[in-house]
Amino acid sequence: MTATDTTVEAKKFDIKGLANRYAIIWATLVVFVLLSVTTDNFLSVENLRNILDQQAFVLIIAAFATIVIISGGFDVSLGATYILAPIVGMKVENSTGNLLWMLLAGAAVGLACGLINGFIIAYAKINSFIATLATSFIIFGVAYLVSNGTIQTLSNMNLRKFVTTRVFGITSATIYGVLFIIVAAVLVERMKFGRYVFAVGGNLEAARLAGVRVAKVQIICFTLGGFAAGLAGTLNCIRTTSAQASDDFSVIFAVIAAIVVGGTSIAGGSGAIWRSFVGVFFIAILVNGFNLNGIDPIYQRIIQGVVILLAVGADAFSRSNKD
């Protein structure tokens, strides 16, 4: 084999690496271009703004849930927190009429749920999927107790403006979503805490022996996740003006799907916040494209499921080929 052969090999290898690494971006671009060409109303400023607005609260949760997953944890109770927090928030709003108190109450409920999850996982060392599955039941139960099974409504409809105000045509909700993504990205990429999160997710015992206070990091991760879910739930119910314990909690599936499709590994120790941002956007334009083309929602679900399997399968395949 000659020297030139080697360089050709190296180049090929690099392209393959680049393709693997940014797979979600290429996929999003392909879908974006396809929809722009084939679907009339897709490529309009208004449609794109709407897509972002609809995904705002998914973005908020996905931003911090990604941190939980990078740390090697998994939090299914975020769906329940997303339901409980606004019920408490609405009650506070009804008695105080104050937006700030409502938001603080919703966020505090989320924070408390996350903190409890974190303590259980860090100290009782229960697998996080199982632990948060169990706390989901508890949180849902508390939601029924607090609401007495009834629907809570916003007393001051003017508060909706907090999430619907448009700045340069973009809703404030979208801005909150993007802000959460930026904050999470800074935390993970620029701060000491982010390094600890990656270390704990990458090799927990090695992180501990390198002086990382593992329990503290895990507790903070779950607390952040709970906080985001609580706040996102509260903002969502401000938009819909009501909250009840039987509300749709499937947001957690959308969040996990976006994180996984984005390319953050469920195994922990690798991933990025921008990946989840692109993942949310990818699924959103896919669904939007289905809607614009009048595809039956039942088939939409099936196709979404297939897309997630493909994403995870491709990830597993590229990993197994590495060794």
Binding site: R195, Y196, F198, G202, A206, L209, A210, G211, G269
Partner: peptide, 24 residues
């Protein structure tokens, strides 16, 4: 392998990990 390295992370992050308090 089990107790030393964080395999997924860069060389830099592996080395600076215990000293981030002084470096931030």
């Amino acid at each position: 392998k089990d107790q030393g390295i964080i395999p997924t992370r860069p060389l830099r992050d592996n080395i600076s990990l215990p000293h981030l308090n002084l470096l931030s």
